[in-house]
Design a protein around this nucleic acid. Structure first.
Length: 314
DNA sequence: AGCCAGGTTTAAT
DNA sequence: ATTAAACATGGC
């Protein structure tokens, strides 16, 4: 299992991107660092780093803020330099989807003002945005790993999966991991995958799904063209993807912010803490509250959870 | 120590 | 059609 470490060329490019204000880079990109070891994303010393795949090539991107919440400006450093202009276009597009999605946050803030709780939450963490995984394939694997067990457990297991099956890249003496490709997880043996802490059944789900993607039988990126209902229908055909996982992929992986997994225990806890004094509530109660923020109910859920569970305490 | 955590499937009524 | 059991690890 000792794979080679990819050596990146020494060349690098730098450029700026300008997300729509307001954008809080620290909170948005730093969310990963609330968890102990949250590969493949690394946020350290105000730098967000991650290995991205551009075509067949691996690049390490380092992103840091050179602006403010109201005047966002991000410095992106890419190593190694990409040769072709088509590659550079792909990379820009990826970075745009990570940090500068065209989502209408002011629409959400407008609605939030009309609700006492959400107004307070939105004012406190203004500029927070979800940073989605770069591929839908990754979002599906994230969903499977996060089924049933706690986020902490899931992230620990997923990080070990990434260490075991993801390509490695060396930079400045540190090792970074790319998220495993469908091909590498398709080749993996479920019995081996289990060793990172996955249940055998999840190992098989991931393995089977990866085979379908690697062979071209299933094209996750094609889902982006479909409407919400169609996406849910396509995803739930996959073994191991139920209602919750499909909705999770939709909102977390595809930015379909009008949808949400109302059964999600985390969302239920957040809505309960914020609106029902912590008493046990149903998915119907969750819907009733978050519907007020349609078509931004997914964002509303994210803001509540962030504020209640992940906002760093002083 | 033991129970609950951002569920899904299979196999029983 | 509804319900129960099995599954894996981490944190309190």
């Amino acid at each position: 299992m000792n794979r080679a470490v990819h050596r990146l060329g020494r060349s690098s490019t730098r450029f700026f991107i300008y997300p729509e204000p307001p954008f809080d880079f620290e909170r948005s990109a730093g969310l990963h660092s609330r968890f102990k070891n949250s590969l493949p994303d690394v946020f350290e010393n105000a730098f967000y780093r991650r290995v991205l795949r551009v075509g067949k090539k691996l690049v390490l991107v380092s992103v840091s803020s050179k602006g403010t919440i109201e005047k966002p400006k991000l410095l992106v450093e890419v190593t190694p330099q990409l040769g072709k202009s088509s590659e550079n276009r792909m990379l820009r597009k990826l970075l745009h989807s990570l940090f500068a999605s065209s989502f209408d946050f002011n629409g959400f803030y407008g609605l939030a003002k009309r609700d006492r709780v959400m107004k307070m939450v939105a004012e406190n963490v203004k500029g927070l945005r979800p940073v989605p995984p770069p591929t839908i394939f990754e979002a599906v694997i994230i969903a499977i790993t996060e089924q049933q067990i706690s986020l902490n457990a899931a992230i620990a297991i997923r990080s070990r999966l990434i260490e075991k099956y993801g390509d490695r890249v060396m930079f400045d003496g540190d090792i970074f991991y790319a998220f495993p490709t469908p091909e590498s997880l398709a080749k993996a043996q479920p019995g081996e995958m289990k060793k990172v802490g996955l249940s055998i059944i999840k190992a098989r789900y991931i393995n089977e799904f990866s085979k379908k993607v690697a062979s071209g039988e299933f094209d996750p990126e094609g889902l982006r063209e479909m409407d919400d209902e169609k996406v849910l229908a396509e995803l739930t055909k996959i073994q191991g993807i139920g209602r919750w996982s499909a909705e999770y992929v939709l909102v977390r992986g595809m930015g379909r912010m009008n949808s949400l997994p109302a059964n999600d225990l985390g969302i239920q806890r957040a809505v309960s803490d914020a609106y029902f004094k912590g008493k046990r509530i149903s998915s119907g109660d969750v819907r009733k509250i978050l519907m007020k923020f349609a078509p931004y109910s997914g964002i509303a859920a994210f803001y509540l959870m962030y504020y209640l569970f992940w906002e760093p305490k002083l």
